[in-house]
Write a protein that binds this DNA or RNA. Sequence first.
RNA 1: GGGGGCGUAGCCCAAUCGGUAGAGGCAGGGCGCUUAAACCGCCUUCAGUGAGGGUUCGAAUCCCUCCGCCCCUACCA
Length: 822
Amino acid sequence: MNRPFDVTAVETKWQSRWLDEGTYEVDNDDPRERYYALCMYPYPSGAAHQGHIRNYTFGDVVVRYQTMRGRAVLSPFGFDSFGLPAENAAIKDGSHPRVFTDARIAELKSSVIRMGAVYDWRREVRSHDPEYMRWSQAIFLALFEAGLAYRAEAQVNWCPGCLTVLANEQVLSDGTCERSGDVVVRRFLEQWFFKITDYAEELLDALEGLEWPERVKTMQRNWIGRSEGAEFDLPVLGRGDLAVRVFTTRPDTGFGVTYAVLAPEHPLLEELTTEDQRAAVAEVVERAAVTNEIDRTSSSEAGVGLEKRGAFTGSHVVNPFTGEPVPVYVADYVLVNYGTGAIMAVPGEDQRDYDFARVHGLPVVRTVVPPEGFVGGAYDGDGPHVNSGFLDGLTKGEAIPRAVEFLVERARGARVVHYRLRDWLVSRQRFWGCPIPVVYCERDGVVAVPVDQLPVLAPDDVVMDKTGQSPLATHEGFWRTTCPTCGGPARRETDTMDTFTDSSWYFLRFADPFTPGRPFDPAQAARWMPVDQYIGGIEHAILHLMYARFYMKALVDVGLAEGVAREPFQRLFTQGMIRFHGSKMSKSKGNLVTPEPYLATVGADGLRLFHLFVGPPNDDVDWDDQTDEVIDGCARFIDRFWRLWHFEDVAFHDEESPADRAVRQAVHRTIERVTRDFARWSYNTAVAALMELYNTVSRQARSAEGIARATLDEALDVMVRLLAPMTPHVTAELWEERFPERPSVHAQPWPEADPALLVEESVTMVVQVNGRVRARLAVAPSIDEAAAVAAALRAPAVVAALEGREPSRVVARAPRLVNVIP
RNA sequence: GGGGGCGUAGCCCAAUCGGUAGAGGCAGGGCGCUUAAACCGCCUUCAGUGAGGGUUCGAAUCCCUCCGCCCCUACCA
């Protein structure tokens, strides 16, 4: 491209100046109204890609705009620098993950600076910084002391080849390890958990008050999965007080229970399995143990494979409703960690039970009458109950409380609420993470490392084993230690924390990384929190956002964040994804589009303008063959503005003319439009409005009549301010060139529209006859209905269209429209 | 299987409360500038809103059915 100015020189000049002068540093005692703008903590994967650019463009617009609105804006940046990619890279080339990570951080940091995004770098956070780790560990211990962290056995994906645990995404769809190709098995290991389930109710209820996209809230609600129902006992036939406890949301269908099912991992399974069924049951249990969840779920279609996925145990339980014995099965479609791990099966009203019953020849009893014409197996809707004793004739809503009442009296029943949400498994058998700061002492058991001995740091002299096994587990100098309580020999915990723990409190550290001796001063955090505008990808809709919400609440409750808002992110914006010719952009597909080549041609300003202009920020962007042309178009707009700013080809006249007044009206309407569009995250239309204004101003200024100097000055002054948050370099340069003695455009106030220039003298009123447009009349905006109708009926085209007929009805919406129906 | 989103001009997208389908950009065409081209400036073509039905004086917008694409989630009793 042929630019009218040296883009790179201008951009690097301003980037250096913002850094050197600390333009966007903000002090905690700043007296202005506060605003906390935050983009999600990025994993430092190296040079930024378009997804980053898009994210930080939106964030930077918010920061610069709110600054111009007079607020003290907190705009921090950091790096979620622990994680698997660094560990894998280190294994591959035998280096240390820190070396790899630090290099990637430097690249990403350079990228965000070169796109013109501005931050208070004094507050920078890196997860692997020992000072940050100290407090990550102190928080872990505070949760531990409050009883919110505990140890329990959990099933993990174990790769026998790599001798290590795999994350779900490391297990391929065929159930093998992505690295070694071995078949992954499920194994029980002692693990650390956080009791996020203690907060299930608050996490659900508090969603209501958050200004988040509705779909994200819906996803969180589904994830928490509140389910109301009843628990009760099914006594085992001929076994004294032994009983199978089940959970159901449909106690009203109890008369239709024709069998019961235990999960393959259910503790009573062994005891209830009779000798002759042992082999069949064992087969189901083994199959469930080696089958990953994808397979376990995919074969349920149309009942395929159900024969092998369940078996009779040989025992019976008594249905408390009918008093009849029903068989107990084991089946993998029942999950051990939901409800009670056992169900009453109601094939008449539950499709999974129905499919299973058909395959295993179990009876199906209908207890709810389906509507006329119902086809299919199970009917799970409402209707009058039948075959249900004392519930006959009742609807679902009436029958449920009656059934619960019955179960309370007769089957040790209780009304209960279950959540799908599970406790957060935080242990990772990894090297490149924050070590869990506890030791195991033969005498004292699990002992917390005293806070003054934190952080527990991983040793540097490690060899990243090709197997993927964490070197911490085998590094004797690390794990052999002494008990802080008794001084005796002890073994250090070699697991590290899930990296989601790091991203669950970084926003608090940003608020105050300055106070020594604590993770942050709660009083300072309370003044910045909650984050006013959080910006990130929809892919974090569930896990990160749920964990961070939990951490925030827990930190308040354990006393580390007293007085801080219990919800961390008041307003959330989720940007759309960037695709490449319709498919997902990713490093592994090799279709990442890096910003580098664009910085040299259209500049950071041009690229930023493209991301703002290309479409609604929450829509996906498809990077295709035409994208480069669109980006060039954005740069051309900047160039046009540059030329107009320098009065190229502009003709001036002296007195303000009617045309000037029209231009001024356009200027003030644009202030109004852009301000409103910023508030509703409609940057694409804000840019379009500015392009439109440019066209209006330029056309007048380049016309034979010309433009008054004052009119053009005002237009340019407004445009440069409205553009400043979006294209910060070029606007700063143009401003400084003309007003070298005045503060930067970024320190200027956001313009305000003059209400007098917003009123329209005349608007177009459409006149329809029977819905067809017959005339357009210029009318005063204040015209009343009667006058509008009168004017409409006078219009010659309307008279002609009516052909002398009397209107039977006239709909008037003054001053926009009149519709005459003959 | 469940939940959500999106389908408007050749392309990306506007249309604020149900009221003129077109703001902006890209591509295409023409003219001017130029020795010529690029750049630049001016002008300009192109759809009736995925399909069908309904409500309404009036539907891109609300309702129903279907088609296509995308995202999330997945045996949650």
